[in-house]
Amino acid sequence: MIDAYKRLMNVESPPPPKRARGFFTDTSLCIGCKACEVACKQWNQLPADGFAMTGNSYDNTGTLGATTWRHVQFIEQAKANSSRQDQRWLMMSDVCKHCANAACLEACPTGALIRTEFDTVYVQQDICNGCGFCVPACPFGVIDRAPKHGQFEAGTAHKCTLCYDRLKDDMTPACAKSCPTASIQFGDVEELQERARHRLAELKARGETKAELYGMPEGKEATEVGPLHAFFLLLDRPHTYNLPDIPRLPRQTMAQRYGWSAAVGVGFALIGALVFRGRR
């Protein structure tokens, strides 16, 4: 019966699970060359976004978006008349975090957003109907819907795929491949996490006291969205890089919200019954 249904509906069984893959982005190594941005655009055939100057440091990309899946942030830390030693120029290549509990995936009403065999989060372009709900659901502002009448995959949602096509062929994602300083490291998530712990200890020993990891299973940022499969070594507080302290997973409070809503509805029904009662 079930087999017949599967044959009729063309249901295929999912590929067998593989080890979880992800990125460890070590911002202490980033030199802001944007090779990752370019490599990502080339491999994924994402159109250019124009040549607008933002006036914000070296950042002319602005934000992640439907056609921008890597974004190098530039943060200038310099007080007026401060000495050279007190000045810092932070760089960080931002990307989809491939959250263990992904808000976008939970929000998606069509099942277009799926978890792949590599434990990454992926948008199936032939399923997405562009409802746009995943966009405000993502606590990091990553995923975006392409313009409805644009040139590029019009109207559907887009974000980093962790180069799903390359992963299938056991290749390194384009950004990590092109990064000249190994700021973006690709591999098995557990192994990367181990590497990150070592790197943090090393930096702390060298006097980088403000350095911290963001997206590790033990971090408070993993409270709701779980460990991030693309995680970071930061040189300052997450806020500095526009990252939330505790990214919120909408599911956590949903029952309470429905509860209040139902309470109002039931209250109205009771009052209605009282108002009309006994007038037959």
Binding site: P109, T110, G111, A112, I127, C128, N129, G130, C131, G132, R145, A146, K148, A154, G155, T156, A157
Partner: peptide, 10 residues
């Protein structure tokens, strides 16, 4: 919807 022709995917 971004793709109204696919509304039934809901």
């Amino acid at each position: 919807l971004g793709r109204p022709d696919r509304f039934h995917h809901m």
